[in-house]
Amino acid sequence: MSTVKIPPVLRQAAGGERTVEAKGANVGEVLTALCEAHPAIGKQILTSDGELHKFVNVYVNDEDARLMQWTDTPVGDDDTLLILPAMAGGQ
């Protein structure tokens, strides 16, 4: 299982955990497993269509997953993912 680092903003949704373990062969599968285990996180980071919100960043071992294969990026037991919702807006 991969390790997912939970930033403070999502910690309450993860039951207060700083890190959680989630199973999956790629980023998408890990995030699906995470959101199934912690539906409150899914509410925060997924769109109403169940897609990862485009303003949510995911890092795999500190590398931007969007610059890799995004949700198809393969991950294993030694990998650490970080979910980071953007601070963004506009007038």
Binding site: V9, F55, V56, P85, A86, M87, A88, G89, G90, Q91
Partner: peptide
């Protein structure tokens, strides 16, 4: 604590826009 996230509105009032609300991932 992270008390606030700030940004400026250069041409509009100090009130959240639709985009500000849509992208407000931080509830606290």
């Amino acid at each position: 604590d992270l008390l606030a996230i700030y940004h400026s509105h250069t041409r509009s009032a100090a009130y959240p826009s639709k985009t500000d609300v849509e992208l407000a991932f931080f509830a606290e």
